[in-house]
């Protein structure tokens, strides 16, 4: 009996057709259903059918489930500053930051050195306009058109005072020309008075 009903059950597991009476018995008897399940499992094992517990399209199911998830509007209540601060704090404890920071400091010092030196070298050029400036015409010291102008003369000077300044500038221009003239004839004057041979050139000739 038992072997007989196992035969049709075994045949059913091999995809043989069941009679109506046999199907009724199978549906009504839970033990028979378990047996059929065991037969199917044995058969599958014998046929070396690989059975995956996950279906091939399981990711689609996950996506579907995610699509059904409600959207949570998560917003941080921390400010940008706090976030940067905490990020820096975390980074500072990390081992990678120290060599990077040391490199950055070294680069900063090098930049300071380079630009500092450049600025030092540039500064004499920037300072080339000195104090009160006298505009003079450096002609060879002959009565030149008076172009002496004092930059400090401002509009609040009365006309009379301006006139006086102009006179003064003319006088200074004349004195400057006289000085240049003296420099020009000095060697001649000295030669005449000392009657010494010319030593201006020739001493360093090689």
């Amino acid at each position: 009996m038992s072997s007989e009903h196992q035969d049709w059950l075994s045949a059913a597991s091999d995809n043989n057709a069941l009679t109506k009476a046999q199907l009724d018995r199978l549906l009504s008897d839970a033990e028979l259903q378990n047996t059929l399940a065991r037969y199917n499992l044995i058969g599958a094992t014998l046929r070396r059918e690989t059975h995956s517990p996950l279906q091939a399209n399981f990711s689609d199911d996950v996506m579907l489930q995610l699509a059904d998830e409600p959207v949570y509007n998560l917003q941080s209540n921390r400010s940008m500053y706090q976030r940067i601060k905490s990020a820096v704090a975390v980074a500072a404890n990390g081992t990678w930051l120290q060599p990077v920071a040391q490199g950055a400091i070294a680069a900063g010092v090098a930049l300071m050195a380079v630009f500092g030196v450049q600025q030092y070298q540039q500064s004499p050029e920037a300072a080339l306009s000195p104090q009160p400036l006298l505009q003079t015409q450096p002609i060879a010291g002959f009565a030149t058109p008076v172009s002496l102008s004092q930059t400090t003369v401002s509009d609040r000077f009365a006309e009379q005072e301006q006139q006086a300044m102009l006179e003064q500038q003319k006088r200074l221009q004349a004195l400057l020309n006289a000085h240049r003239q003296q420099v020009r004839v000095m060697e001649q004057a000295q030669q005449a008075s000392h009657n010494t041979p010319d030593t201006g050139t020739g001493q360093n000739e090689q």
């Binding site: 003079t136 006088r171 000085h179 003296q182």
Partner: peptide
């Protein structure tokens, strides 16, 4: 070379100018 000029007073203030490296001091 440095020149020193003495002239009659013009009743103007003491002042200094510069023409390049040449100082003019009154």
């Amino acid at each position: 070379q440095v020149s020193v000029f003495v002239q009659n007073s013009q009743r103007l203030p003491t002042q200094a100018y510069r023409d390049g490296a040449t100082t003019i001091f009154v």
